[in-house]
């Protein structure tokens, strides 16, 4: 009973918040509603028994990624409404509705699950974090290390890309000065 209430409440809220993200004209509103939607998605993870995944979602997405967006927003003019040429809204919503309908039909179809067997079944008697650790550091050790190297590369790339010409202020210098110095 409570699970159903929580599921439908979270679903409606998440869909509404993500619709705000997609349709809003203001970057700040879009980012805030995206962060709120991600908090609610971590609620889904907790409902599904994936406690560790929910915590990681909260820390990485809501904490790190959103903070990164908020920092990046200082470089852009975030308070002004963005003007976009939206060409043919009807076609976009038709295509989106068709994709939604197709996905719903596919996912609502009955699953013949007799042949599906768990490769790495959930370990009984331990918490979710411990079970995740047991699988992650045995079967998925190599992808884990590769992911670590990928994060390191991404960090270096981010620092180099964003840190170049950091001594130039975007607000006091106009763009022509910066682009002239680019061509030198």
């Amino acid at each position: 009973m409570y699970e159903q209430i929580a599921f439908y409440l979270f679903s409606v809220l998440t869909i509404g918040l993500f619709l705000v993200t997609v349709l809003s004209k203001n970057i700040l509103y879009a980012m805030t509603s995206l962060a709120a939607g991600m908090v609610l998605i971590s609620g889904f993870f907790f409902m599904l028994g994936a406690d560790f995944l929910g915590v990681v979602q909260l820390i990485v997405y809501v904490g790190a990624v959103m903070a990164l967006y908020a920092f990046a927003m200082m470089f852009f003019d975030a308070t002004r409404d963005i003007k976009e040429k939206t060409t043919n809204d009807a076609l976009v919503f038709f295509l989106g509705g068709m994709v939604a309908l197709m996905l719903v039909i596919i996912f609502a179809a009955p699953v013949f699950s007799e042949n599906i067997q768990a490769m790495y079944p959930v370990v009984e008697g331990v918490g979710n974090a411990q079970a995740v650790g047991l699988v992650l550091f045995t079967k998925y050790l190599v992808p884990f290390e590769v992911a670590a190297v990928m994060l390191l590369v991404a960090m270096i790339a981010g620092i180099i890309l964003a840190g170049k010409k950091m001594d130039h202020s975007l607000t006091t210098n106009d763009d022509k000065v910066i682009s002239q110095e680019d061509t030198k």
Binding site: T14, V22, F44, L48, G96, L103, V104, I106, F107, A108
Partner: peptide, 14 residues
């Protein structure tokens, strides 16, 4: 859950 995920994916697609 799969239908919810499909709907969210369609929102992102739009």
């Amino acid at each position: 859950y799969l239908i919810l995920s499909g709907l969210l994916f369609a929102i992102g697609f739009v």
